[in-house]
Simulated scan of single mutants.
Amino acid sequence: MQQNKPFPRVLTIAGSDSGGGAGIQADLKTFGALGAYGASVVTAVTAQNTLGVQGVHAVPADMVAAQCESVLGDIRMDAVKIGMLPDVATIETVAQALRKYPVPFMVLDPVLVATSGDSLALENTVDAICGQLLPLADVVTPNLNELAQLSGNAPAQDEAEMLAQGQQLLQKGAKAVLLKGGHWADSAQARDWLVQRNSEPQCFVNSRIATANTHGTGCTLASAIAALYPHRRNLNFAVAAAKSYLHGAIAAGQYWKVGSGHGPLAHFWRTVRD
């Protein structure tokens, strides 16, 4: 098959989800569903299913560095999506690799995990993300808890507080922040806000879908933005198109029965036929 235009090459740097619903597995499914070539750097191996995370093993930083060197030194990447980075050494390693091999577009989905359970370890991780990766990212996609940790606040209780915390991340060096309001279950709508420097906040609205199959939504949204941005190189377009794709994946996935807890999305909903 001959293509009229090149397909995007997108790298995910994230943890592996043994249950297949989130992390590296969700990222690669999303890339494939949206017509992008996906490559990966595994930062952690998790024992995980629809009920939760039972264990986390961080990949040594030198192996993360070797993966980055192998992939970025050979394959020209159009975009990169960064997910779970389990410790400061890994954050610094990834930042160093991306400074050595700049990628045109970077999405940072700050999955904040302290493998030791130590609050100080988490604090150091947050400081490292803000200092090392926030200035490199073109857009950051935190959920409400991650937004609070990165901005140094309690979790936002309404959209006004959420927008204020987003502005704080811009002041810390972020170029753009996608504020995800889907965690407020008392609303009939899922309202996300994109805040950027020198620009008015833009709201993206979808209807809320009543389903427990929401595992991997954050990974999927961030990966979709990374896969879609190279087509037009317009962040607003990429966010809107990614939101539309995610909404369809949630809608189709609500009828799945995978596991006993929060099931996965239907990443290939556009190609599956009854």
Score class of each variant (00 low, 15 high):
residue 2 Q to L: 10
residue 3 Q to M: 11
residue 5 K to S: 14
residue 8 P to Q: 02
residue 8 P to H: 00
residue 9 R to T: 03
residue 10 V to M: 07
residue 14 A to D: 02
residue 19 G to I: 11
residue 24 I to D: 04
residue 27 D to L: 06
residue 30 T to R: 08
residue 34 L to D: 04
residue 35 G to H: 05
residue 36 A to P: 01
residue 41 V to S: 07
residue 43 T to A: 09
residue 45 V to L: 12
residue 46 T to E: 00
residue 47 A to L: 02
residue 47 A to C: 00
residue 52 G to S: 08
residue 52 G to E: 09
residue 54 Q to V: 05
residue 55 G to A: 11
residue 57 H to E: 11
residue 57 H to G: 02
residue 62 D to Y: 04
residue 63 M to E: 02
residue 64 V to K: 04
residue 66 A to Q: 11
residue 67 Q to M: 09
residue 69 E to K: 09
residue 72 L to R: 10
residue 73 G to F: 01
residue 74 D to Y: 01
residue 75 I to L: 14
residue 82 I to R: 01
residue 83 G to L: 07
residue 85 L to Y: 04
residue 85 L to K: 05
residue 87 D to C: 08
residue 89 A to I: 04
residue 98 L to W: 07
residue 100 K to Y: 04
residue 101 Y to H: 15
residue 101 Y to T: 03
residue 104 P to N: 06
residue 105 F to T: 02
residue 105 F to A: 09
residue 109 D to A: 01
residue 110 P to D: 03
residue 118 D to N: 14
residue 123 E to L: 14
residue 123 E to V: 07
residue 124 N to W: 00
residue 124 N to Y: 10
residue 125 T to P: 00
residue 125 T to D: 10
residue 130 C to G: 08
residue 131 G to N: 14
residue 132 Q to D: 14
residue 133 L to Q: 09
residue 136 L to A: 09
residue 136 L to E: 03
residue 137 A to D: 08
residue 142 P to H: 12
residue 143 N to W: 03
residue 145 N to C: 14
residue 146 E to W: 13
residue 147 L to H: 13
residue 160 A to P: 00
residue 163 L to H: 01
residue 165 Q to P: 12
residue 166 G to L: 09
residue 167 Q to H: 11
residue 167 Q to M: 11
residue 167 Q to C: 09
residue 168 Q to A: 13
residue 171 Q to L: 11
residue 175 K to T: 05
residue 176 A to I: 08
residue 179 L to N: 05
residue 184 W to C: 10
residue 190 A to Q: 08
residue 197 R to K: 11
residue 200 E to T: 12
residue 203 C to N: 05
residue 204 F to K: 07
residue 204 F to G: 13
residue 206 N to C: 15
residue 209 I to W: 04
residue 209 I to K: 10
residue 212 A to W: 02
residue 215 H to A: 05
residue 217 T to V: 10
residue 217 T to Y: 05
residue 219 C to P: 02
residue 219 C to E: 03
residue 221 L to Q: 09
residue 223 S to R: 08
residue 226 A to K: 06
residue 227 A to T: 03
residue 227 A to W: 01
residue 229 Y to I: 06
residue 229 Y to Q: 05
residue 234 N to S: 14
residue 237 F to C: 06
residue 237 F to E: 15
residue 237 F to L: 07
residue 239 V to S: 11
residue 239 V to C: 12
residue 239 V to G: 11
residue 240 A to K: 15
residue 242 A to S: 15
residue 247 H to E: 15
residue 250 I to D: 04
residue 252 A to P: 00
residue 254 Q to W: 14
residue 255 Y to K: 06
residue 257 K to D: 15
residue 260 S to Q: 14
residue 260 S to C: 09
residue 262 H to D: 14
residue 267 H to E: 00
residue 268 F to C: 10
residue 269 W to L: 04
residue 270 R to S: 15
